[in-house]
Design a protein around this nucleic acid. Structure first.
Lengths: 366, 366
DNA sequence: TTGTAAGCGTTATCAG
DNA sequence: CTGATAACGCTTACAA
């Protein structure tokens, strides 16, 4: 850490950042200095150094057992010496393949999506793929733009956080001729592969749980569109089936934070017909509802039961602990990764569709 | 929504997913059908259709004003008709450039990182770049692997969530000859550009705030390494400067959830010398501490003041509301994006270093 | 097992 | 403003 008195009298403070002077990759050849750094090393350079043909280097790198041990050793040494790495553009241009798996998420700020992407990345990276994530921001426009660039990029495979709704984009993805993974829902006709669960089922299950706990006048809080709409649909069906009254549906366009949930509960409780329980199809909203309930002196679960959807460990730990329906998002990511790898290896998975079970985590909010 | 009775008696339930049958991009030519879908359209095909040379198509796409209006119109029509999009691999191979900006985050599950990446992405995508995110998972090994693939990929620029510590990786990035953005700290010698803040300063400020509030026996809770270590260092300095006793340092290797924070507080309170206040250098840990305090019947702030670091809106809203030191991570992302764009446009920004102010958000926890 | 030749689709260069 | 030509670095196809 260091402070420096500037000429103008202001004090600029710098962090001392940890620096690790490791040996690193062997230096480029000898006195080449800056020259060498500027010039890219190509497969030809490595080949020359190892005294073999470029194609042999290519083979040694991609299929070591197809090259004799001595040449392989020479090549490996030359690679290490030069710090050579394959040019993926040239490689992709010629072969029409790449080792990049592209993922698209509607929203990186969702804990659940991030968790699924993380575990999926781990699986694919272990198999030698580069896993990169783009955002679509819950916008069809952005989604289309993202998928178009993808179309040109020819990744090895595509992982989607969600399912594609625009028919034109589905067509676009289908046309790529590469493995496509959709997730988080259960459409009858996925583009290619799917690891998902039924959102309507989740809604029905919610009604079921509330009924069994004795609630008869319930409210719904959630997103208006997408999976929120599916959960609501299932919830309506479930309420009807059980003879529960759905006293109100509080819908939002977008969830930006717990304050959205606060607003929802405030609005619900301001109505004449108050519910005895709430199903929040989103854990951030549920958290906001729990906080607002406390502020309004609405006791949970005595005055109002709250059931959430998701896996938020925070919601689970905040007294009285949110009861949630959800899925194991890390499992979703792992399963999706495994299916993608199978598909990429040329041995398509036996099942192109994997349905995840809903899990209920009991808290004290019901 | 649909249920189907399977032969084995199990019931499979499918979501009906919203499907939008939009017009989409104009269909490929005429009867070409599947053939056309399989064969990629290249710049030559478009050129033939527009009756110009391929290079003219290239120009029309990259620099429309350099092509006469009539030819440009013909080309645009041909592009629309064929649904042509440039092959980025061929383009990158030839030109050594690409429109991909690669970001690397140590952890996608951090709300703050996600927020910064989101706003940075928005800025760069508006400028026509494709913003993709990879993960390094707080591991030097993964970081090195990620950066190596990056080296080969020749992105237009690199955005890093954090600063690079390994000297060999710094060297690697420097050698790329493209704009590099580091963030979240304030090293004296960034690789290229930097939008950050002083973590040691944050630690000193924490000591300052606790002192002013009257606390004299404090504890530290945070990550052992990286920025956590810097904040601790500053905190130690600040405590010494103010004459505050730092009764204990509770360090963790990794933060996976609020339960880590619970454990920390439990451990702190089990010691003989109890603190009257806590500085948590991470908001998830702070949240865990607040929850555990309640469980232990430690009143906040009466028995124990808690000061956090971050921006968590949840922590701010949970009674009594966490007081936090932090930065505006969306601003960080925007500033980084703007500097990258300036640099990419060939007009390097006047300032290659932008220091963000620390902001204190007052809650009731002190 | 190894090598030769050719070309993937684009753009830099230079000429018209 | 437009075009011919060559080349980017790699891998497929084929030959030895």
């Amino acid at each position: 850490m260091q402070s420096a008195q500037e000429e103008d009298g202001s004090t600029v403070v710098y962090d001392d950042v940890l620096r690790i002077a490791d040996p690193g990759p062997p230096k480029q050849a000898h006195g080449a200095e800056r020259e060498a750094a500027a010039k890219r090393i190509s497969i030809g350079d490595v080949a020359r150094l190892a005294d073999v043909a470029p194609i042999t280097v290519s083979r040694a790198l991609r299929n070591p057992q197809k090259v004799s041990p001595d040449k392989r050793a020479r090549i490996e040494q030359a690679v290490a010496q030069t710090g050579y790495s394959i040019n993926p553009h040239a490689s992709a241009l010629k072969s029409g393949r790449s080792n990049v798996v592209l993922a698209f998420a509607s929203n990186l700020m969702s804990e659940q999506f991030a968790s699924a992407l993380k575990s999926c990345a781990a699986v694919l990276e272990d198999a030698g793929y580069l896993f990169l994530v783009g955002q679509t921001s819950y916008s069809y426009e952005r989604e289309t733009a993202a998928l178009r660039s993808l179309h040109a990029m020819k990744p090895a495979a595509v992982m989607l956080t969600g399912v594609i709704e625009l028919e034109s984009n589905r067509e676009l993805l289908r046309g790529l001729g590469i493995p496509i993974m959709e997730t988080w829902a259960l459409p009858r006709d996925p583009i290619d592969m799917l690891v998902g669960f039924s959102n309507t089922e989740a809604g029905r299950l919610a009604a079921d749980i509330l009924f069994r706990k004795g609630y008869r006048k319930v409210a719904y809080v959630g997103r208006r569109s997408g999976r929120g709409a599916l959960r609501l649909q299932g919830f309506r069906e479930g309420c009807q089936a059980k003879g529960i009254t759905l006293v109100c549906e509080e819908l939002v366009d977008d969830v930006t934070g717990v304050s959205d949930g606060r607003r929802c509960l405030a609005s619900v409780m301001a109505r004449p017909a108050k519910p005895d329980a709430l199903f929040c199809s989103n854990d951030v909203l549920a958290l906001g509802c729990m906080m607002e309930a406390r502020r309004l002196n609405v006791r949970v679960p005595t005055d109002l039961g709250i059931l959430g959807f998701g896996q938020s460990d925070i919601a689970a730990e905040i007294p009285p602990g949110l009861t949630m329906i959800g899925i194991d998002s890390a499992l979703l990511g792992r399963e999706a990764g495994a299916m993608l790898i199978a598909s990429l290896s040329g041995t398509p998975p036996a099942q192109k569709l994997k349905r995840l079970d809903l899990v209920v985590s009991e808290g004290g909010s019901l």
